[in-house]
Every structure is written in C-alpha cells, then in structure tokens.
Nucleic acid binder design. Structure first.
Lengths: 232, 232
DNA sequence: AATATAAAAGTAAAAATTACTTTTAAAAAT
DNA sequence: ATTTTTAAAAGTAATTTTTACTTTTATATT
C-alpha cells in the first residue's frame, strides 16, 4: 500500500473503475462488444467491459490491461469519453467510472479469447439493455466517436490494411447512421490526401473492380485533416 | 461510511478530487482564476481550484460545492473536461482528478469572496506556472471551451445581460486567440438567430453607437445552432 | 459481341466563406 | 450650422465548398 500525506482524508477514498465501449467493424456493420457480468450485483446481465483501477495504475493503464486480457491485442486505440460519478449509479456501492471507447479489428485470434469470456458482438440496433448506466455510456461513446470521425478519417484501427472507398464509406454510414453520397464522399476523402491508392483491385463487389487504398503513414505529431470545417 | 458489496476490493479505493478551470471575461480579456494552494505539498504555489469528492457526492456536485463556496454563485456553467489519473501526477499521493471548466461573470460581489481565498485573475498570456499537471489541465480546458464555442454562441455565462456585437466578437477573439473579421463575424452571428437586438445603443465606443443585443431565451432541450459545419 | 454492374469521373447550381468597400449615425470639432 | 471623425452596419464580388445529380469506364458475365 502506498503512503500518502493525504491519509488524513482517508474517508474520501472511492472505488474507481474503468468501463470500455468496444467498437469493431465486420460484415459491413459497426458492432459493439458486451459481456455477461461476472460479479454481483447484476451478475449474468449484459454489461460493458469493466475493471478496477488498481493502485499504481492510471485509468488508461487499467483500460489497456482489461482489453489486453480480453483480446490479447497490444496497441488498441483508446479515447477517454467521460467520467460518471453519481454515487447511486451502481447499486453495489459508490463507484466512479472512467469511460473509454476502444477500436479493435475483429479477427479470429481475438475472437477465441473473447468467446471464453462469454462476450458477444452486437450491432447498434440489436444492442440489448445493459446494466446500470451503461446504455448511456454507449450513447456518449458514440457521440465521441462521431466527433472524432468528423475530425479525421477514422478506420486505421477498424479496417484491414487495405480497403476500398466503398468500404470506408460504409463504415461512415454505420458510424453516423446515414447514407453518404458515394461520389461526394469519394471526392471529399481523396481531397484530404490521407489515403494512398494501391494498384490492386477488389473484384468481389463489381465487375469493374474497386481500387484498394491504404492509410498513408501518420506523421509524428500530425493530425489528419479536419473534416469538420470551422465556419466562424 | 456507506457499505458496499465491493468492500472486498477495498485496496482499490483511490483519492478522488475535482479541479476547476475558472474562466471569466473582464476588460476585453479572457481571464482565469487561480489560487494559492492551502495544503501541502506545494502549499502557497499557484493552483487551480480543487477539492475532494466527498462520499455520497458526484464529481459535478463537488465542483459546484467548491465553486459556490468560493463565489457564492449558484448557477455556474460547468463542463467536464477530462479525468487525470497518472498515479505520479500529485507528489502528495495517488489522486485521480476530474477536471471541469466553469464560466462565471466577474462581478464585485463575487470578487470579495474570491479575494479572501488569495485567488487572482490572470489573462492567458500572464498565467504563472501552476502546480502538478495543472498547466496541462488549463490547455485541455481551453481546447474544450473552443470546441464548445464552435458549436454554440458562448457568452450567456460570460457576458452581461446586454452586450454589443463588438464585445461578443472580442470575446471570441480572446477564446480563439485570433482576430475575427468584424463584418463577417456580424453576418455569421446574426444568421444564427440566437440574439435579439435591443433598441438601446452603447455610445461609449463610437460616435454612431452600437446596438445592444441579448441572448434569446434558450428553449428547453434546444441546442444553439452549430457554428461548425460538418463537411463530410 | 453485347450486357450488366458498381466504380470512378464529371458537372452545374446553390450555399458558404472570405476579403474587401461603402454607407451610416451621431458626437465632436471647426 | 457645417464639417469632420469614428466605429457600426450594410453591402459586394470573387472564391471555395457543398450538394444533387449525370456520364463514362473497366471488367466479368451472358
């Protein structure tokens, strides 16, 4: 146990957890990984992936630890979403939770691990009721993902190495729950110059075939171009 | 002390605090209120307004409590910014802090209370080094304030009841640290239809005089118009 | 060789942004 | 009483971006 000169305030100590909203993209659908909760209360009900923030650990460390244990993956894209601290939010006790969303590539290797945990991928419209305030957390994560997707071309962590523009557009359709115009989407994305066209084509979706693209390497410290435009 | 079925995880309990970045606007300058820290470590150094999150309290409750104690004000605009949890961030012990920014109207009444606390308003460019990671917290709060200001006309909580467009523009100049074009700013703001022009003019700044404006009442659940425009 | 398909390119109108110039209202100076 | 001065307010035109489309293209299939 680490000592602290704040120990006189001991009664202010709180349980602190992390909760992760895990997004994946598979079969043209944005999906969300949820779990059957392992401890009481609400044991067995659907829940986000959570865990305690251990002593000597930051909340982001904790999120990476639980995600790594689940998926075996090392370099997971994480973004902090919000902190929920209503003392009544968890009927089991007063727990502050720091929320993150994670973007992961759904692959067979990770899938095996995931199954061991009784986890399941759901599309947004199939998502079941979750414990506590977790459905609200999902909404918040979606908002944040949309904001992020509006500032840079998201997909590095959701799409395979090479992908077609149609597939990227479908991902955006899924994230924003709307249909982007194919021509305008293409024009916009290519104008940002963050993708590189490969010589190879994907012939599975059309007779003409669609060129594969990949992300150009992200330069150190460089943000992708904003796609939002400030108008003031 | 409230009981919890999580008590077996007692060793996971952490100190949780809030820190508030307090923005005010006075004499055509965006200012920031900082404090001389009252407890060790770093007692006497400049610091954000902070406090413990008490048992039975949410972090937002805690932020409102410390802000109310400081200013006497009740309805302070608060937005959660980020949670910092590096166990090394506070040399006095492992403390997770939930950061908020607050917008307050600088008035004489509040100023008296504020002085009792050894607090001082600084402009952005005069801001002294702060303890721990607090300068980083200020940067984060500014980013969030800029984002917010890009989505709605901020100022309800920073400007007096009636104000000129020149004054609003100056506030935006301060927030974004750039000079907005007077004509284009006026055109843009008025097109959003969130302001109402009063009959009265402010004659102190020009011979022609500038009309006062006030915010139209914010309809329940209604956001102000986005000023950012999504371009994808 | 013709057909079918989605990909890719192209187009033109509308809207928004930007960088300016001109006009205006009223106080102050002449 | 007229002119001057000032920032406010209105106006303008070029440019850029967005939007809603249409046309052309490359290639597998018929």
């Amino acid at each position: 146990m680490n000592t602290s000169i704040y120990d006189q305030y001991q009664e202010n100590k709180r349980f602190v957890s992390v909760d992760c909203v895990i997004f994946g993209y598979e079969e043209e659908k944005l999906k969300l990984l949820v779990f059957q909760r392992a401890i009481e209360p609400s044991k067995g009900e659907w829940s986000l992936l959570g865990g305690w923030v251990n002593a000597g650990e930051s909340s982001e460390d904790a999120a990476r630890r639980v995600l790594n244990k689940l998926t075996g993956l090392q370099d997971i894209y994480l973004e902090q979403v919000h902190t929920f601290s209503d003392p009544e939010r968890d009927p089991g006790g007063s727990v502050i939770t720091v929320e993150y969303y994670a973007l992961i590539k759904i692959d067979a290797k990770a899938s095996n691990l995931i199954e061991d945990y009784g986890a399941k991928w759901f599309t947004l419209d199939e998502l079941p009721p979750l414990i506590f305030d977790h459905n609200i957390l999902v909404e918040k994560a979606l908002e944040k993902l949309r904001l992020r997707s509006s500032y840079e071309i998201i997909g590095r962590k959701l799409l395979p190495e090479k992908f077609t523009l149609t597939r990227l557009r479908n991902l955006y359709d899924q994230i924003f729950q709307k249909q982007f115009d194919p021509g305008n989407f293409r024009k916009k994305i290519l104008s940002l110059k963050v993708l590189e066209r490969l010589e190879e084509k994907d012939m599975s979706e059309s007779k003409k075939g669609a060129f594969y693209f990949k992300f150009k390497p992200k330069k150190e410290g460089e943000f992708n171009h904003p796609i939002f435009k400030r108008t003031i």
